[in-house]
């Protein structure tokens, strides 16, 4: 009797160690999910290593810090003396992005405030879908609009010789960046607890006072994050900017000057260069600079937004 009971309990104990199919599936899924999780990190490190490796020869060789960042002469194909100054390209990118933000910030904040605070039911759903649809338009389509629609329009309205300029690219880029900024800004406004609005309204505040004095201050980090993401988008955008800026190396004196962006330079020239040549490596160095700039902007945006969630 006793022995039999012992045998039973031993058998039961042995069951705990049994690795059945479910155990293996569970382990396999764990590994897969983990790989998926860290793949983003692996890719980003991989990309950074790759562009650094390609650009390194230039940085260690012909690279002159002062020339690269403070000269406006980008003449990589010059026969006698090639120069690699990206100041004008930086100015091009910065001016287009700056103008784009001037246009996108009021639009996106206005839309976000309307969607989050005023619109209800159908209107709100319709608007949200429309904004998301706007974000899905390929950048080459935007570039096409800049080239075919805005260009003659700007020439007509402002009576300038060229319509492919800072103004054109700034408007196009502003419209491109606005949807994502709207989405993030709307999330930030939605994250403001409703009891704040209720408290303010119960004291007799008008809708506008509630928004201006309570909701916007409470959401300010999230809104800043939205703007920074828009800036990051602006710096990184290539195709539309390539098509709408006029692609002329130039430090702009007015919005009607043509410029050239950092990204557009890489896109336009990389295919024409010999792999490993100084020109090729200089383009990769531009890539490194862009990578670092957008990385920093996104990081700041992320930290700022995270701060909102905590608060």
């Amino acid at each position: 009797m006793t022995t039999k009971r012992n045998a039973e309990s031993v058998a039961a104990a042995a069951d705990f160690d049994k690795l059945n199919r479910d155990w293996y599936i569970d382990k396999a899924v764990q590994v897969l999910v983990f790989l998926g999780g860290i793949s983003a990190i692996i890719f980003i490190i991989g990309i950074f290593v790759f562009i650094t490796k390609e650009g390194m020869g230039f940085i260690l060789g012909d690279f002159s810090f002062t020339e690269f960042f403070f000269s406006q002469n980008w003449r990589p194909t010059s026969e006698n003396k090639a120069t690699y100054g990206i100041l004008a390209l930086i100015a091009g990118t910065a001016s287009v992005t700056g103008l784009a933000m001037l246009i996108a910030i009021p639009f996106s904040l206005g839309t976000a405030i309307f969607i989050a605070e005023f619109a209800t039911g159908r209107t709100r759903e319709f608007l949200k879908i429309t904004v998301e649809l706007l974000a899905a338009i390929p950048s080459v389509v935007w570039g096409f609009i800049g080239l075919a629609l805005m260009n003659p329009l700007i020439i007509d309205i402002f009576d300038v010789p060229v319509g492919l300029n800072v103004l054109n690219a700034g408007i196009i880029l502003g419209l491109m960046a606005a949807p994502i900024m709207t989405s993030i800004a709307e999330d930030a406004l939605k994250a403001v607890p409703d009891r704040y609005r209720e408290a303010a309204e119960a004291m007799g505040a008008t809708r506008w006072q509630v928004i201006y004095k309570v909701v916007l201050p409470a959401a300010k980090n999230g809104l800043l994050g939205a703007v920074l993401l828009g800036v990051g988008r602006g710096f990184g955008e290539t195709m539309a900017v390539l098509m709408a800026t006029g692609h002329a190396i130039n430090i702009p004196g007015s919005v009607f000057d043509s410029v050239r962006a950092l990204t557009a330079t890489i896109a336009a020239e990389l295919g024409e260069t010999a792999v490993g040549s100084p020109h090729y490596q200089a383009l990769f160095t531009i890539g490194i600079s862009l990578f670092v700039i957008t990385f920093i902007i996104n990081l700041i945006a992320d930290l700022v937004i995270r701060d909102v969630r905590k608060g």
């Binding site: 009891r195 209720e198 408290a199 303010a200 119960a202 004291m203 309570v214 201050p217 409470a218 608060g311």
Partner: peptide, 13 residues
């Protein structure tokens, strides 16, 4: 007519 709510809701200022 002032109102005090169930959960204290001071404004985040």
């Amino acid at each position: 007519v002032g109102m005090v709510f169930q959960r204290p809701n001071p404004l985040p200022i």
